[in-house]
């Protein structure tokens, strides 16, 4: 099961404030433990939304509005993502609970969302090869 862990943006992250060395060390250690457990797919920090752009399609309109940030924090803004692949929801939650948070920067939060499963059918290479042969014969 794949889960996206989203770090909510705060006034501090939007202001680009340096969270301090201890936090950074903690994040590094956290990512390493994710990797060691073999669950880490991706972990990225987003730049403040002042560097972002929104493409908005208003109802009924044709061309979208393109607006540069910064955007309001209350509108579900995120500051970072961590993508993991685990066996249970409990495991995902445990990892979310272990995520380090910067101290002294007010309230912050993490949202967990499960990703849609990609249907992974085990491939039979012989069938694939024979299908390729048939298509070749049919000039497809």
């Amino acid at each position: 099961m794949r889960y996206l862990l989203m770090m909510r943006a705060t006034g501090f992250t939007e202001a680009g404030m340096n969270p301090g060395g201890t936090y950074k060390e903690a994040v590094k250690a956290y990512r390493q433990s994710l990797a060691k457990a073999g669950v880490l797919l991706a972990a990225e920090e987003l730049r403040p939304s002042s560097a972002g752009i929104r493409v908005v399609y208003l109802s009924g309109g044709d061309a979208p509005e393109v607006r540069p940030g910064p955007f309001p924090i209350e509108q579900g803004l995120i500051a970072g993502i961590t993508l993991i692949d685990v066996d249970t929801e409990e495991e995902a939650l445990n990892w979310a609970l272990r995520m380090p948070i910067p101290s002294g920067q007010g309230s912050c939060g993490i949202e967990l969302r499960r990703l849609e499963d990609r249907a992974v059918h085990p491939r039979d290479p012989r069938q694939t090869a024979m299908e390729a042969e048939l298509k070749d014969y049919l000039q497809l």
Partner: peptide
Amino acid sequence: IAESTVAQRIVRAKR
């Protein structure tokens, strides 16, 4: 695919 995906796949396979 991403190198990190391959690396993780291998770590988890061994586990």
